[in-house]
Design a protein around this nucleic acid. Structure first.
Lengths: 222, 222
DNA sequence: TGATCATTGTCAGTTATTTGTAAGGTTCGT
DNA sequence: ACGAACCTTACAAATAACTGACAATGATCA
């Protein structure tokens, strides 16, 4: 895991870098503000540790400029002991955490774990099948890149099919999923639903297995 | 924004709750570990403040049980000064930040802002969408560069939407965050709120996904 | 204290979309 | 060729969302 360590005191820098390396991080060190900013802007880091007292450009400005450019990797800042207004500023500038110097290495490691875990927990809940892509966050669907509007019922239906892709889903299963279980059995609402979706999705996406049910096919072997 | 405050000292609890309310949070307070756990497990909070020294179930256990049950709202823990091993434990148990008692209210507010926006995947305290820009520190909004006044309710609503940028937020979610959970269901106050904000923000900023909810979008999509 | 103003929830009326139903057509397997 | 399974279309009821007006509330200020 790549980590950028920005710290102007060479003694601290060397010690911290050593411990971090021993704990599995791939550490780049910088001591100058300008160069630190450049590095963070260009390289892909998983996390950065940033000392606020720096020659050149000060740490706060570095952080702000990163955030302005949408560099969203988590940043832990190092502050002087007791200077709590500096911490507030740092956090409001977009820092994810701070640590007052001097600090215990054990604590630094714990907080790195925490902010990395946080940042990586942003998995995008997207289901893909064939050339369609269902985003559960935005409740939106794109087919071949172009957006397709779905009504709530259609969305729920397609979502269920997408979760069971390549499996045959019977009308009864769909009925139980979409409606209360005591729904009238002699209704053709599911068929209508499928038809409406097909009109939007195009042919060949939902196939019928006569007598068994429907399948959302993954590969589009027409 | 709903917040759960877990603190057994009634004096501290009352003071902190007062300041938080004044800053736009919808605060529920709990003093007992068991009940705090239950509340956090059942309700939808945007963030929680958790004192580690509690009667009943201790704070660390409360936190662990939340995380085991996939309750992933950000948690800020309050620890005794100087007890850094407790902090490390807390963070590894799933806390997002800590604060040592006694603390400055200003700092508590800053860190709350930080963990809330971090949990939502935002790196910066300034959230932009389309041509609007929301500064969560000053609670101010500009559209196309010119400032726009928001009422408290409108700000809270827009803030919540901004935290969930590009995600569809249902009316129910909004209701739960803006009002207490026992709010009347058959009211259209959220719709009215949205309409009032749209009048100020212009069209295309808040889009409706009929049947699902609202989205604060980047504005350029039809 | 009383007037004024902003805020916010409620309501009624309107518009637009969604969805179940029914009726008739088509396809498939045997 | 027959029936069952499935498709398609149109329609009407139900539902969701928008809007403007109004009233209650509480803050502000002379």
């Amino acid at each position: 895991m790549r980590l950028l360590l920005v710290e102007d005191d060479p003694l601290i820098s060397r010690d911290v870098a050593a411990v971090l390396s021993k704990n599995g991080y791939l550490v780049d060190t910088e001591s100058n503000g300008e160069e630190a900013w450049f590095k963070g802007d260009v390289e892909e880091y998983a996390v950065a540790i940033l000392d606020l007292g720096l020659p050149g450009m000060d740490g706060l400005s570095v952080l702000k400029r990163w955030r302005e450019n949408n560099r969203n990797f988590p940043v832990l800042i190092l502050t002087a002991r007791g200077n709590w207004s500096e911490r507030v500023e740092g956090i409001d500038a977009g820092a994810d955490d701070y640590l007052a110097k001097p600090f215990q290495m054990e604590e630094l490691l714990a907080r790195l774990r925490a902010i990395v875990r946080r940042a990586s927990g942003q998995a995008s809940p997207v289901i893909t099948a064939g050339n369609m892509r269902l985003d559960t966050r935005t409740k939106s669907l794109t087919v071949n890149g172009s957006p397709v509007e779905l009504s709530p019922m259609e969305y729920r239906c397609l979502h269920f099919l997408a979760l069971n892709r390549d499996k045959v889903v019977s009308q009864m299963e769909l009925t139980e999923q979409l409606y209360a279980q005591d729904f009238e059995r002699d209704s053709n609402s599911v068929e209508v639903l499928i038809a409406r979706m097909r009109r939007k999705l195009g042919k060949g996406v939902i196939t019928t297995k006569r007598g068994f049910g429907y399948t959302l096919s993954d590969g589009d072997n027409s």
